[in-house]
Design a protein around this nucleic acid. Sequence first.
DNA 1: GAAACATTTCGATAAAATACGATATGTTAC
DNA 2: GTAACATATCGTATTTTATCGAAATGTTTC
Lengths: 100, 100
Amino acid sequence: MDIIKINAALANKTRLDIMRWLKNPDAHFTPHISVEGFGMGVCVGKIHEKSGLSQSTASHYLSILQDADLVIPTRIGKWTYYKRNDATLESYFNELRKEV
Amino acid sequence: MDIIKINAALANKTRLDIMRWLKNPDAHFTPHISVEGFGMGVCVGKIHEKSGLSQSTASHYLSILQDADLVIPTRIGKWTYYKRNDATLESYFNELRKEV
DNA sequence: GAAACATTTCGATAAAATACGATATGTTAC
DNA sequence: GTAACATATCGTATTTTATCGAAATGTTTC
């Protein structure tokens, strides 16, 4: 759990939004075509559309969030679904409050 | 309370350390010469010494923390003392937990 | 295996952050 | 008022981040 890496990942409006969207995907995304619900998270294409970022930047941002351990990727067929890593977030919030 | 600005301010090891040091100045700094205790916070020179940063960078970093409303400056004589802004930190922790 | 599609990786370039020394500003003490 | 000192600001060089389009990789379907 790297606080600095997490803070850097969350020091960007779009990446913060992505984390918020992933909190409640039903409210922010239309259903996937090949998967029931958002149990695995949301695929890169949907985040690309929703954010207005280029596809490559969207993918890159997700990899930054993943590197900070804030999201968990699952590859299914052609798609990579990303969901929140609530365990990391919980440790992060606790650690911040205790340490900083 | 600007979460992004705060995250950016805290996405740097030295600035995170400064916030930690300011939590308990007695444990990290030798006493001031012209002021009793650390009620007003810690002067720039001490942070410059402790951090190993140049004087100008130390001053700059403190201004970044101040811009994020994380510290409160008090000028007394030649010195500017910086102390934590615990009100902002409390809102920040709460907001992060609620919103992100 | 070739076409179609989703995602990642690879440059490229512009913007922002890091960090310094030098200079300017403000304060105190003579 | 000038010397001494603390801090802030300026100018600059280096590194990192942001962001894109293009190319590469991986999957599925014919």
